[in-house]
Simulated assay, not measured.
Amino acid sequence: MNATPDDQPVDVPSPRGHRLFWWVLAIAAFIVVIDQASKWWAEAQLGDGSTIPVIGDLIRFVLVYNPGAAFSIGTEYTWIFAILAGVGAIAIAWFAWRVGSVGWTIALGLILGGAITHLGDRLFREPGFGRGHVVDFIGYGDWFIGNVADIAIFAGAVMILVLTFMGIAPKGGRVRDDA
């Protein structure tokens, strides 16, 4: 009874959407806690410059402080990334308020959690407010070094792609094919 029937227009609000919003927040909070705890561990265990191989050189734990975005792009624009993370978190929360699909709820919770924890790093870590560096410690070969928030954002984005290709609407039910 909670699912939107296939013959209803996609823009009909789902009564369960607002209830699912609280799950988005719970998932986001879980990601923030796990991410920050793992960063605390990384700083405590790897702060002396050591590296811990997990799967040889393919996956390893190594501590770096990233002032930029993915792949350390834009290192001189840290404050812009703080603003983008804040705007992104607000936009995701606004969109999540209307979601009526469990799959979309999980995906948005993952992305929101990653955005919030990155925003927290930018605001409260050294070298200062709005210019903080993100703690990265999961090395993927010679490609890049990331963290738990990056994994959550990536997983949420992949989920959104899969849900979209499956035709599952954010508000629940299937997207109608009017063609």
Score class of each variant (00 low, 15 high):
73 I>K: 06
74 G>V: 14
75 T>P: 00
76 E>R: 12
76 E>H: 12
76 E>Q: 15
77 Y>M: 10
77 Y>V: 13
77 Y>S: 12
78 T>L: 08
78 T>W: 00
78 T>M: 07
78 T>D: 10
79 W>F: 12
80 I>C: 00
81 F>T: 14
82 A>L: 08
84 L>M: 15
84 L>I: 15
85 A>Q: 09
85 A>D: 12
86 G>A: 11
87 V>R: 12
87 V>G: 15
87 V>Q: 12
88 G>E: 10
89 A>I: 12
91 A>Q: 09
91 A>T: 15
91 A>L: 15
91 A>R: 09
91 A>G: 14
93 A>H: 13
94 W>H: 08
94 W>Q: 07
95 F>R: 04
95 F>T: 05
95 F>W: 14
96 A>C: 11
96 A>V: 07
96 A>F: 12
96 A>Y: 13
98 R>V: 01
98 R>S: 13
98 R>C: 01
99 V>R: 07
99 V>M: 10
99 V>C: 12
100 G>M: 05
100 G>E: 01
100 G>A: 04
102 V>Y: 11
102 V>A: 10
103 G>L: 06
104 W>P: 02
104 W>T: 11
105 T>C: 11
106 I>E: 02
106 I>Y: 09
107 A>N: 08
110 L>K: 05
110 L>R: 04
111 I>G: 09
112 L>C: 03
114 G>Q: 09
115 A>D: 05
115 A>K: 04
117 T>H: 02
118 H>R: 08
118 H>Y: 08
119 L>Q: 04
121 D>E: 03
123 L>W: 14
123 L>I: 12
124 F>Y: 06
125 R>M: 03
126 E>Q: 08
126 E>K: 05
126 E>P: 04
126 E>R: 02
127 P>V: 01
128 G>D: 04
128 G>Y: 06
129 F>Y: 13
130 G>A: 04
132 G>W: 05
132 G>N: 04
133 H>E: 11
133 H>K: 07
133 H>D: 09
133 H>F: 08
133 H>Q: 07
135 V>F: 00
136 D>W: 06
136 D>V: 09
137 F>V: 04
138 I>W: 02
138 I>T: 02
138 I>H: 03
138 I>S: 02
138 I>C: 03
140 Y>A: 02
140 Y>S: 00
140 Y>T: 01
140 Y>R: 00
143 W>F: 15
145 I>Y: 06
147 N>F: 07
147 N>L: 07
149 A>H: 11
149 A>K: 11
150 D>F: 11
150 D>Y: 11
154 F>E: 00
155 A>P: 06
157 A>L: 13
157 A>W: 11
158 V>L: 13
158 V>R: 05
160 I>V: 15
162 V>Y: 08
162 V>F: 12
162 V>L: 14
163 L>V: 05
164 T>V: 04
165 F>Q: 11
165 F>D: 04
165 F>K: 10
